[in-house]
Each structure stands twice: as C-alpha cells, then as structure tokens.
C-alpha cells in the first residue's frame, strides 16, 4: 500500500498485528498479573508471543469463543489481567452475550483484542472481517474502545489498556501501517484525541488505518489551498468531546473517516456531538450498507471508497458547504 506516501510518513514493515504481539509481550513481561487467552488464532493475532515466553500465563481455549470470554471473566475476578484475544468478528458474533454479561455488565478488569478489524484483512473475505465491530462494542456501555493508528500508538494503547481498571476493547489490523508518531513518542491518554496535522479550513476526524489516509488527503488538499486539521481519534469511547467541539468551532466543517460501516460507527457518534454542541457541515467516509468482496486490501479500499482520494473529495464538499452556509446557502 502507498498509505502515507503523500504525507511523507515513514513506512513500517511489520503489520500492526505483529506490533500488537510485541506490545503484549512487553506488558506481560513487566506485569506478572497479565494472562493471555486465545481462541486458537494466536499465530494470526500474534498473541502467541506470550505463549512462547510465558506458557503458564497463556491459555488456548480452542475454537469456542463463548467459553473463552467466560473463562477470561473468571480470571479477571481473581485479580489477574486477562487479554482475551481473537478476530473481532468471531468474538463479537459468537460471544456477544458473554462480553455483555460477564465482562461489560460485570464491569470487570478484562481486556479484549479484536484483531482483523475492518476490511483490510483482504483475501479471507467478509466472513472474517470486522466491519461492524465498533458498532457492536458501542452497544456495551462500560467498554473503553481503543483504535490504534500506527505502531507507536499500538504500543501505547496496549500499555494504557493494561493499566486501566475496567473493560477495554482494542482494535488491531492485519496490515502494516506507516508511522504517524515516532516510536515511543505517541501521546496517549484514554479519552484524548491527538491533532496530527494542523489546519483551520476544516477537520478530518479519523481512526485506525484511515488516519494515515487522512494525512495523505491533507497533503493533497494543502496543495489546493485548503488546510485541513487531522484528528486521530485513538479512543472511540469515551470520545474526546472537547477536541471535536473545538474542531467544529475553529474549522467550521468536519469529515469523518473510518474503516467500518457508516451505520453505528465513529462518524455517527461524532455527528451526535457536533449536532449537540456546534452544528457545522459534515461529510462521512466509511463503508456503505454492504458486505465486501474478498481481495487485495488496496483493491478493496478503492472499490469501497476508503482511500485518501475519497477523503479529499469529501473534504472539498464539506469545505464548500461551509462557505455556502456562510453565504446563507447551506445545501
């Protein structure tokens, strides 16, 4: 992928899931209370790093996600810090009831890795994809929701999730993402969005893989004379209302971009905050109401309109709407 090229970002060779494996091993090494539960996908999620290093603190529960989550809840109740790991689609679709009662409603100290979020797992196709994961986790009100956007933020997110007391969902991806932050230097606080590009003409609010695409779009827009602010929405819950309202007030137009269904995703929640506090023209980049094909990730992103070019086009529209609104001609 050429993701991050226009923005001049440094490519990172390792897929984000491998970065997760390294980050998980780091917290497990530092904290003996960390235990890892696997639904027989440790080689895909990369949770297997802990299996090799600390076999007694690693449990493969097999292809049985309901039990996987329940056992994790029991371990959390014993004062341990379980990382429950699998593909987001399998966890949420097989074990939603268990996540809801045993983790969310019980408000226990469990961490869940939903790997292979979005469509960029690619060739395995829509049965394995998590295009609705953020909406489903959104249905469990006690879950903190973290969506890292690059290697440094993945490391920071795994650490923050492990230190936080309570249920945390963390989205991971199969693809490699370019570096947005220098390694070890991602400012990360749960509930805080980061401004990763300054601009006053409009704001692009993005999460995950779409942050690099938003930075590419910002570079393109800048050449056209439109200066876009880019907000990296590392936490989807609790959402950084302050940053969103400031973006609406200071830039006057907002585009959201997510590798997720538009229905129930980040954009709809941002829109609720914008509409409540400071309404401005908005445009939304995300997956329309459809399942996708299998295929090469780049081909999929193009087919389903999740590229930097799509973000840039949405930004031009939002920017134009802002000016029309200023002239009393909001459309």
């Amino acid at each position: 992928m050429s993701l991050g090229h226009d923005a001049g970002l440094t490519p990172h060779q390792a897929p984000l899931r491998n970065v997760f494996g390294d980050a998980l091993l780091a917290v497990a090494t530092e904290n003996p209370r960390v235990v890892v539960l696997d639904g027989d996908l440790g080689n895909s999620t990369k949770a297997e790093t802990v299996r090799h290093a600390f076999p007694k603190r690693f449990f493969n529960l097999g292809i049985a996600e309901s039990n996987l989550v329940g056992v994790g809840a029991g371990l959390a109740a014993c004062g341990l810090i379980p990382w429950i790991t699998s593909f987001s689609s399998f966890l949420l679709c097989n074990a939603y009831d268990q996540l809801r009662l045993a983790v969310a409603m019980s408000n226990i100290n469990a961490k869940v890795l939903g790997s292979h979020g979005g469509i960029t797992l690619g060739k395995d196709g829509p049965t394995q994809m998590g295009i609705e994961d953020l909406a489903l986790v959104g249905g469990m009100p006690t879950f903190v929701m973290l969506v890292p956007s690059d290697p440094a933020s993945m490391h920071a997110a795994v650490r923050a999730a492990t230190e936080y007391v309570g249920p945390v969902w963390l989205r991971s991806s199969r693809v490699a993402l370019p570096q947005i932050y220098p390694m070890g230097e991602c400012p990360f606080e749960i509930g805080q969005a980061n401004i990763v590009h300054q601009g006053d003409d409009l704001t692009i609010i993005a999460c995950g893989i779409m942050v690099a695409a938003a930075l590419d779009a910002a570079a393109v827009l800048s050449r056209e004379g439109i200066e876009a602010r880019v907000l990296d929405m590392l936490t989807l819950r609790p959402m950084d209302t302050t940053a969103i309202v400031a973006a609406a007030r200071e830039t006057g137009a907002i585009v959201t971009a997510e590798e997720h269904l538009l229905t129930g995703g980040m954009g709809s929640n941002v829109a609720r905050i914008v509409a409540s506090h400071h309404p401005v023209p908005m445009r939304f980049v995300g997956l329309a109401d459809t399942y996708t094909d299998s295929g090469d990730p780049d081909d999929l992103l193009r087919k389903y309109h999740l590229t930097a070019a799509d973000i840039a086009q949405a930004a031009r529209e939002a920017y134009a709407a802002k000016h029309d609104a200023g002239n009393g001609r909001e459309r």
């Binding site: 809840a73 109740a77 014993c78």
Partner: peptide, 25 residues
C-alpha cells in the same frame, strides 16, 4: 455475587476461569 448471570449457559466458564486463576495464584 460472583458472576452476572441470567442469560443461561455462562456460569461454568466463569467458574473454570476461577479455577485457572486459583492455580496461578
């Protein structure tokens, strides 16, 4: 109250988690 229950089928898994936690602890 050791577990949130009411949607049936969940308690045995939580119980197994407590057993595995007891081993580690």
């Amino acid at each position: 109250v050791e577990a949130t229950t009411g949607s049936l089928g969940q308690g045995l898994s939580v119980g197994l988690g407590h057993v595995l936690g007891g081993r580690l602890n």
